Simulated scan of single mutants.
Amino acid sequence: MSFASVYPHYVAKIERKGQQRSDVDLVIRWLTGYSQEQLEKAISDEVTFEQFFDDAPALNPNASLITGLICGIRVEEIEDPLMQKIRYMDKLVDEVGRGKKMTSILRS
């Protein structure tokens, strides 16, 4: 599955809840270390999620602080590293949609 095919759903989800696309981009960049230009290129190149995370400059060292449930599964207990990273991203987008403060979302 390509990251580009899911990204519009992330944006639509948070926009329905009154948030902005730039907030989605911010949390994705925080998680992956991508610059805005690199993120846009990954979207336009329609890279897979595996490629997206393999090419990420650096997973944020505080990513392990992302905890909680996504689809009834605790993100901190997911054993598959790729699936855990995807669920980290899902969790961050959910938090943006719920209107949490960015300092809390970015675990700072």
Rank of each mutant, 00 (worst) to 15 (best):
M1E: 02
M1V: 07
F3M: 07
S5H: 02
V6S: 03
V6T: 03
V6H: 01
Y7D: 00
Y7W: 10
P8G: 07
A12G: 01
I14L: 11
E15K: 14
E15T: 10
R16K: 10
K17C: 09
K17E: 13
G18D: 12
G18L: 14
G18N: 10
R21C: 08
R21P: 02
S22E: 07
D23S: 02
V24A: 00
D25H: 04
D25Y: 01
L26T: 02
I28V: 06
R29D: 00
W30S: 12
W30K: 10
W30E: 09
L31S: 04
L31W: 01
Y34N: 00
Y34I: 08
S35P: 04
Q36E: 03
Q36A: 00
Q38L: 07
Q38V: 00
E40K: 01
A42M: 14
A42G: 06
A42R: 09
I43T: 05
I43Y: 01
S44I: 02
D45I: 00
D45E: 08
E46H: 08
E46Q: 02
T48L: 06
F49M: 01
E50Y: 05
E50D: 12
Q51F: 06
F53E: 01
D54R: 05
A56F: 05
A56H: 06
N60R: 10
N62P: 03
A63I: 13
A63R: 11
L65F: 12
L65Q: 15
T67P: 12
T67Y: 13
T67F: 11
L69M: 15
I70H: 02
C71I: 11
C71L: 15
I73Y: 12
I73R: 14
I73L: 13
R74Y: 13
V75N: 11
E76S: 10
E77K: 12
E77R: 11
E79T: 14
D80G: 12
L82Q: 07
L82I: 10
M83R: 14
R87D: 03
Y88R: 08
M89H: 03
M89R: 06
M89W: 02
M89C: 13
D90T: 00
D90G: 06
K91P: 04
K91G: 01
L92F: 12
L92T: 05
L92A: 13
L92N: 08
V93C: 07
D94C: 09
E95I: 10
V96K: 09
G99Q: 03
K100Y: 15
K101L: 15
K101Y: 14
M102V: 11
T103P: 01
I105H: 11
I105Y: 11
L106K: 12
L106N: 13
R107N: 15
S108H: 12
